[in-house]
Amino acid sequence: MGTRVTVVGEALVDLLWRTGARELSAVPGGSPANVAVGLHRLERPVTLLTAWGDDPPGALVNDHLVTTGVEVRRVPADSARTIVALAYLGADGAATYDFLADWAPLELPVPEDTTVLHTGSLAVVIEPGASRVLDLCRRERARGRTVAADLNVRPAVQPDRDAYREVCLRLAGAVDVVKASDEDLAWLFPDREPAVAARALLAAGPRLVVVTLGAEGAFAVTAEDEVRVAAPVVDVVDTVGAGDTFQATLLDAIAENGGPPAGREALAAVLARCAEVAAVTCTRVGADPPYRAELTGM
């Protein structure tokens, strides 16, 4: 195996509605697609396994992915429709979402030189694709690949909190690394503090759980350690794609190191790097992760 990261999940179109605006902006994206772009800009070999429909949103997705330079494998699917997300952007740049969603890939061929497999977001919740992705995670982990997931909770696609929590716990049991935001955990575990909720995910079976805290930074828990880092202070334009940039940077480190960081010092260094790179995305409009050349000296 090499150092390739293979990303499995949706590519979609975000319809961005900013507070006070009269018109929507159609922007191609999707968390897994954004993660793949972030990895590519960090000069990490990456393949995106995804599906979209032969419809107008799909044409926009196709054009976008072609321009990114990411190696994309469009897999056959039961559905002919592209996922469309309506993203409401508040005055603080934070987004809430609603979805017109189908996710039904028929096959997910992982390149042989893959070291790390990543998935998450809608791809692990929307059936029938979610069950196929979960099976893939279990198989690839059994083969010795590091498997990571970003929960990226979207209640609009599964408003039943108990059902969504069970999905996330099953996924946590099939992967090595789980990332979530404090908002994800607050919705999944409304009666628990973030650190306690993170430990609940860790108990399901991963080696590492990472939690992003927005402007407060991030923390991570393992069986032995808990590490917390601060976030850089920046002028925030919006937060779209910041979590995906954080995840891309984490995956890049995992691929580089041959597995999740071990020990407090190594884990703190990786988290700090992830927070720094994500902060750059917050200074830009939309999901626009930085290139490696922009990060020299960070």
Rank of each mutant, 00 (worst) to 15 (best):
M1H: 11
G9C: 00
R22D: 15
S25Q: 15
A26W: 08
V27E: 10
G29M: 08
G30W: 01
G30Y: 01
P32C: 08
A36M: 04
V37S: 02
G38V: 00
L39E: 02
R41S: 06
E43H: 12
W52F: 10
D54T: 08
D55R: 05
P57I: 12
G58A: 10
A59H: 15
V61H: 01
V66I: 00
V66Q: 07
T68S: 07
T68P: 02
T68W: 08
G69E: 11
G69W: 06
G69A: 09
E71W: 03
V72I: 10
R74P: 01
V75F: 00
V75D: 09
P76A: 15
D78C: 04
A80C: 08
R81P: 05
T82E: 09
T82F: 08
I83H: 03
V84I: 07
L86F: 10
A87N: 00
A87W: 01
A91G: 09
G93E: 04
G93L: 06
A95D: 11
A95L: 12
L100K: 08
W103V: 00
W103E: 06
E107Y: 01
E107S: 05
L108V: 09
V110L: 13
P111V: 08
T115G: 11
V116F: 10
G120A: 08
L122F: 12
A123M: 07
A123W: 05
V124P: 04
V133R: 03
D135I: 04
R139I: 03
R139L: 06
E140Q: 06
A142K: 14
R143P: 05
R145Y: 05
D150P: 07
L151T: 04
V153Y: 07
R154S: 08
R154K: 05
A156D: 07
V157G: 04
V157F: 09
Q158E: 10
R165C: 13
E166H: 13
A172G: 00
A172W: 00
V175I: 04
V178D: 03
A180R: 08
A180L: 13
A180P: 05
D182R: 14
D184L: 11
D184P: 10
L185E: 02
F189S: 07
P190T: 09
D191Q: 15
E193V: 05
P194F: 01
A198W: 02
R199L: 14
A200N: 13
L201Y: 01
A203T: 13
A203E: 14
R207D: 14
T212Q: 00
A218Y: 07
E224T: 12
D225L: 11
A230P: 09
V233C: 08
D235M: 09
D235Y: 10
V236G: 11
D238H: 03
A242I: 03
Q247C: 11
Q247T: 13
T249W: 02
T249V: 10
A255G: 12
A262S: 06
L267N: 14
A268K: 07
A269I: 13
R273D: 09
E276V: 10
D288H: 00
P289M: 03
R292F: 05
L295G: 03
L295Q: 02
M298L: 15
